[in-house]
Design a protein around this nucleic acid. Structure first.
Length: 198
DNA sequence: CCACGGATGCGCT
DNA sequence: GCGCATCCGTGGA
């Protein structure tokens, strides 16, 4: 079932945790693909130097400042990252979707990714965007319209499986514990100690 | 106009 | 595990 728009009005930490086990669906190029969210990161409006909003409003981060429940897509290193805009308007917070467990449309994902290696299909923020054909045209997209991209409830994980770690790749605020993963799930990215609770 | 670096990923060791 | 390709947005000249 499609998530209520009000879901996205909560704070980014709550949402980053709650999104684990839910289903991200994209309909791009007339093809439907979906995956179960297994890794997220929260980016806060206050006291978070790694958040894109720290430099204020720019043309590229504008979606973050807009209404909650929209997509914020930005390019990095010739790839894209997909975020969900959270919290109140004007508060510029977001949750980055970092990894999915492939769910449907695997064949289409393999074509777009150029590999049949399941572990490299939707593990990592840039890879999942390529697998789902998420690009800059998805920026600002309203997730409640079921147009290009949306999220459905599908609580397939246990809350006790959630593991919290520092975020990956950030060059500031490295100490903040704002990354949420489904522990021991093979489709989570990053170092082993931040994937498995053994 | 140009230099720089980043919420990355790939390939090779 | 590490080096580097790649490219766009940003900010300073």
């Amino acid at each position: 079932m499609l998530l209520e728009p009000s879901f996205y009005q909560q704070d980014p930490l709550t949402i980053a945790r709650a999104l684990l086990g839910k289903r991200l669906v994209s309909r791009m190029e007339r093809k439907r693909t979906s995956g179960i969210i297994v890794e997220t990161e929260a980016y806060l409006f206050d006291d978070d130097s790694a958040c894109h909003a720290v430099r204020g409003k720019t043309k590229s981060n504008l979606a973050m400042w807009g209404p909650f429940g929209r997509a914020y897509v930005y390019p990095i290193h010739a790839k894209f990252c997909f975020n969900v805009v959270t919290g109140q308007s004007g508060h510029a917070s977001a949750v980055l979707i970092r990894s999915l467990q492939p769910d449907s449309g695997l064949k289409q994902m393999e074509i777009r990714r150029g590999t049949t290696d399941r572990s490299k299909l939707t593990t990592g923020p840039g890879r999942l965007c390529q697998a789902m054909a998420i690009d800059r045209t998805v920026d600002h997209c309203d997730l409640s319209l079921k147009r290009k991209i949306w999220i459905e409830s599908a609580d397939l994980i246990n809350v006790e499986d959630v593991m919290v770690t520092p975020r990956i790749g950030v060059t500031s605020a490295e100490d903040l514990m704002l990354r949420f993963v489904v522990a021991n799930n093979p489709f989570v990215s990053g170092p082993k100690k931040w994937r498995c609770n053994v």
